[in-house]
Design a protein around this nucleic acid. Sequence first.
DNA 1: TTGCTTCGTGTCACTTAGCGACATAGCGTC
DNA 2: GACGCTATGTCGCTAAGTGACACGAAGCAA
Lengths: 209, 209
Amino acid sequence: MSEARRARLRLEISREAARLFWEQGVAATSGDQIAAAVGLSTRTIWRHFRSKESCAEPIVLQGTVTLMSVLRDWPRERSLEEHLDAELVRFRDEGPPVGLADERLGRKMIRLADTEPALRTAWLMACDQLERQLAAVIAGRLERPAGDLEVRMHAAAAAAVVRVLDEHIGAALLADADTTEFEDTAAVSRRYAQAIREATGGAIGDPVT
Amino acid sequence: MSEARRARLRLEISREAARLFWEQGVAATSGDQIAAAVGLSTRTIWRHFRSKESCAEPIVLQGTVTLMSVLRDWPRERSLEEHLDAELVRFRDEGPPVGLADERLGRKMIRLADTEPALRTAWLMACDQLERQLAAVIAGRLERPAGDLEVRMHAAAAAAVVRVLDEHIGAALLADADTTEFEDTAAVSRRYAQAIREATGGAIGDPVT
DNA sequence: TTGCTTCGTGTCACTTAGCGACATAGCGTC
DNA sequence: GACGCTATGTCGCTAAGTGACACGAAGCAA
């Protein structure tokens, strides 16, 4: 099975699982239900996920893939603020239409994670993935090996602040507070950029020659 | 049941679970075995832990409780480097003798987490706990509410770099590389302090008036 | 076409993690 | 000693996961 097809299937399962988790809670949702909802046998679900809760991981990761894919092709000569602002706007306008719904689902899972420890582990595992990807990006920028201690610390700190920002913004969006604060892509970009810059002691954010 | 007694029992269970996990792997260790090893009924294990893997959390957290308890009574007029150095030496000399064995066990769990995703979740959950405690300390230092966004970001970034340092040092100690590098408490203290200072953009580390 | 291989999935049987409900034993208080 | 409180044990059950094997679709060769 091609890697891409496998990822798509996992995401598909994850969507249904997340929907059920949100509608009726994690404990009340069974593997059989998830399987039925996505139209697969239960056995196949366990072939793709090692546990019920981990079914939420792809959709939760999906909330950050935009950011990650933007970061992945961050040109060396651009500042973080500049790049984020430009690319996030582009994504919002030209991005895939499923993206919005998925992001909303992802936010719901993060919200659920506040009360469901099982989902908290899924969220943390997703952030762990994000951290590894970030490490690769940072290693490239700093021209150091990916396993380098300093690279790992910067990646961890950056991933951590991104996680907190995601939790914060996600909670606000779900609470239907004044979302106007987050409509301004430039302002949001600046917040992310500034947080990453600060968390990495300024090592990540500037253009590199 | 007093909070302290409950914590002691959880730690006791965690010790046996960690030992078994290390000796025979997570998958090969059953709840019954853990229960038998600690001398309790299986049912009681599930009263104290929500899953087999989470049994590892206390012993994994134990590796950082020293640091946490040191941070908790960090006087406002002291710099982080100063305080860590003084207190960690004091702990090493006067601390409880069980501490050493527990720390070693904790490092083994972190090592296992590299290959066992089930344990990785436990380790991440433990770090999540650490982050919350750190948030309280930082909130106190900055005289802000604990839920404050900036406090949370600083706590997350600090916890993240502490985690990476722990992983790094732990791996080195287990690999029996030249551990002389970590014998020097002052140097280790300085590394932790510097990492936290950098990850929080200098907000945490200096004395506050 | 036929036959062979490969791989994803379904089916079924089985183990065990984990919980609900009730019984019991320890322990402090009067 | 009687009473209540709470931690633990026992029993039984549900459901999370796994192993083994069979089926069917797709690809390839002759």
